[in-house]
Design a binder for these strands. Structure first.
Lengths: 337, 337
DNA sequence: CCACCTATTGACAACGTTACCAATGTCTAT
DNA sequence: ATAGACATTGGTAACGTTGTCAATAGGTGG
């Protein structure tokens, strides 16, 4: 079904244009000190046989490839597609290509994927969160290229990190709920709280509630993936156990919207009977009515900056940029609280 | 800031275990006819220095890499993250890795990305849609590995294709709207209708409406990306021009939901004043109220089957599987029509 | 006991590219 | 005019792996 002509090599280009292989190489990679005639001869030969440089041979010879390893938990969480879109846009006009791996929130899986991908000698690595297994951390420390950890900035970066503060997010929601005079506040998480950033958010939320004199009444960490359904069932469980709860902070907008829709279809008044807050600020959560109270995070921008930092460092902009890059997030006071 | 020890090679393993390089190679790649002692010596040496096979050197020598090129329009369209998730799960237990490229719905961009990625000699290619530029098509025909085109199956596959029928989708919605007795039906699209599958859907929709004696009253193709906002503004434009429209088929759920929310917040009764239908069957469109009338497409399954077909062919399961793989989609009769 | 076969291991070359060094030619300052 | 600097081009080897062929050892049937 396929053609399979042998792919042209530098040798072919050199023979056709009557120059040495090394000269052809120099022209193709834009090395300095090439005469105009030589360049012209080689370029036209290359064009005529459709020569493409072979990145495999190139990177066997040299050091690193033009691949950027991106490891995220999953695409089904709306957060990560936005991040990946941002990264891709930042790398769009560079020769760098994204190699994507998904961990399903398992740190063992992160380790395996990373080990595998590092064997490609990538130009850089982007992964999510600041917490990694011991051996993941070792591999990253051995890795010579730039590393960006995305999503949260509450901790130490191995190299660079871009994200928003989970601690601040938890505090903002706590302050908001207390200011609105809710008294019996609960929390619902998912994914067994494996992404440590959600744990950070919850702990900060709890601590701030306690500080404000209105400690958390109850919390429920679902083991399943977050989804609208999970949010609805989380809400039901909590209310069944503890009917006097008057506000719930959900680990993300999906859970929160699921709970909201459940209330709407079961005659539970929001925020009258119960207040609901989420996290992320997904587009859709701002279009429904009432608008969801949530924290809007700049996901695309996180990805874009991560890609940009990586690109700059790979391009030779050494120095700078190491450390935490904290982006702003905003509390959206919607109609659900 | 980083460690940068030289990466161990086969030579290191061979020296440490006192065997030849080629024997070490054979053990590492599990070749036949290896004595137990040799295997043991080599394996323990490899373990002790943390040897990892170098896929770059391997694929320079051999033929193709263990990379799978995946080219999709964008991650911000909820459809593609699901596809990518499905592909990833299908490839999870193989050595294959996803290399991701995004075209932003530009066929020129598809061409550039594909050319670049093919230079890595990928094991296989997955891309979206059955329509490609002339030179994209040529490159694909030259390509020796398996190719899967995902999303739609209304046309001819270069090699394999997995998706649902856009023609059927358009017809189903047309039949549904006519059956519900809507008389003045309109259509709203986005992305300048660059993905040909949405064009196919619209044309089938129009043809079926005509056949049923209720031809399309008006259609509006927005040039912008689809989004909730775009859906709302599409609705407004159409109604401004043509107030007697009583039903609109939107190219996807995002547009449809945007229109629905607009109606809800502007006192337009749905489906009383206007009926709304979408396409995709996103999770969220089924959780809102009223539930959106739409066509539910098996996106994850499309990705999964695409990955599975690719994996099988790469593993040597030649033969079979070429051609169109049509998956089922279902009309969801929601409360918006 | 010998030709022959199989199992096991090794040597060499090659994949396509580029770093490094060498060779040639050209130009400038003294 | 000449040494030295620079521009331009070429040759060789090497990156890490594996296909191919060769070599060795042990075993088999006649």
């Amino acid at each position: 079904m396929q053609g399979k002509e042998r792919r042209p090599t530098l040798k072919d280009v050199a023979e056709l244009s009557g120059v040495s292989v090394i000269s052809a190489s120099r022209v193709m990679r834009g090395a300095p000190n090439i005469s105009a005639q030589l360049r012209e001869k080689v370029e036209s030969a290359a064009r005529s046989i459709g020569y493409q440089r072979n990145p495999i041979a190139r990177s066997l010879r040299g050091e690193s490839t033009e691949l950027v390893t991106v490891i995220v938990p999953s695409m089904s969480n709306h957060v990560f597609p936005n991040i990946v879109d941002g990264i891709d846009d930042a790398l769009k006009h560079s020769p760098l290509r994204l190699v994507l791996g998904m961990t399903k929130y398992e740190s063992r899986s992160e380790e395996i994927i990373l080990r595998d991908m590092l064997s490609w000698n990538p130009a850089g690595v982007i992964l999510s969160g600041l917490e990694h297994s011991e051996s993941t951390r070792e591999m990253l420390e051995q890795f010579a290229g730039p590393i960006v950890e995305v999503m949260d900035v509450d901790g130490d970066a191995i190299d660079m990190a871009v994200g928003t503060s989970m601690v601040q997010a938890g505090e903002l929601i706590a302050q908001h709920l207390v200011a609105r005079n809710y008294k019996r506040i609960a929390y619902v998480g998912a994914w067994g709280e494996r992404p440590k950033r959600s744990l950070k958010r919850r702990l900060a939320f709890e601590a701030e509630l306690t500080r404000l004199g209105s400690p958390l009444v109850s919390s429920l960490i679902l083991d399943e993936a977050s989804s609208l359904q999970a949010g609805a069932s989380g809400l039901q469980h909590l209310l069944a156990e503890n009917p006097e709860i008057d506000a719930i902070f959900f680990a993300n907008d999906d859970l929160a919207m699921g709970a909201l829709f459940h209330c709407q279809s079961h005659g539970i008044a929001v925020p009258g009977d119960i207040a609901i807050a989420g996290f992320n600020g997904l587009d859709i959560s701002q279009s429904i009515s009432p608008q969801l109270t949530t924290i809007a995070t700049p996901r695309y921008e996180i990805g874009h900056l991560a890609g940009e930092l990586l690109r700059q460092r790979i391009a030779g902009d050494t120095s700078s940029a190491a450390g935490l890059h904290r982006l702003e997030q905003t509390l959206i006071e919607g109609g659900t609280t």
